[in-house]
Amino acid sequence: MERLVFLLSTGLARGAVLALFALSLVIVYRAARVVNFAQAALAVVPVYVAFAITSATGSYWLGLAAALATGALLGTVVERRLMRLVPQDNPLAGIIVAIGLVMVLQAGLAIAFGPDHRPVHAPFPQRPLEVGGVGLMSPYDLFVLVVAAVVMGGLALLFNRTSLGLQLRAAAFAPETSRLLGVRVPRMVTLGWTLSIATAALAALLLVPTGLGLDPHAADVLFVNAFAAAVVGGLDSPAGALVAGLSVGVLVALVTGYASAAAAPPAVLALLTVVLLVRPQGLFAAREARTA
């Protein structure tokens, strides 16, 4: 029982990071209709910047701000200077360019910083808090949950309550109709990339202290699990990313805790397979349009 409670609570914290990263994939998919395979590499670059800033100044918070800023800038530049030039008539072109970008970024990071794991310290203790003798999540896990909740709440407000969010959603769903209403659709696509990579960078930054440390591949497994979560939730659905992200996080924690860490990836794959068999469009995908 104590073990279950502990696994559930740490699973939720890992799941929050997954949900955040899955949300970043949903944002860029909605904005640009691409599955961004470069998301992990693009997310790790800002984490290196954060690591450098934190090492130089001693302030975790300056590093965090730098990661968000670098992520936003990177997203903007990649869309404006690279993705926009890729032919849009075939999704394969964008995927291949993204994979190429992964190779360039990861090799570049390895050349600049070396391929080794660099230990990254969390801003809060990682020892589990005990409540009534039962080990729960650590203060750092709590911090991760709060940050993820605040960011997801902020994004939900932006998308659902503001004029800009309305334009972002309209441009994603119906580009031509949106242009007819005066929405600057190309700018909305860029902004989607900006928000997406900043969010992904934050997720990677939150993840790194809980793993082996920082290396050019530090976000790869996060990408794979978050991609599974995004597909399970329905690539189009922010709510789906949240629910599926938390579920996958808990699943991984439970399987790791009760079976072994090696069993976690097949468990995620099994979940993905079952959902795709039962509901290929994902659990929270938008309903089909009425035809009569």
Binding site: S163, L166, R169, E176, T177, S178, L181, V183
Partner: peptide, 21 residues
């Protein structure tokens, strides 16, 4: 446009708000 160019994923109120921007 021809074929009722409403944004199907947005609500009636959101479509109108978009038009009024």
């Amino acid at each position: 446009p021809e074929g009722r160019g409403v944004v199907a994923e947005l609500t009636v109120a959101e479509n109108l708000r978009l038009g009024a921007l």
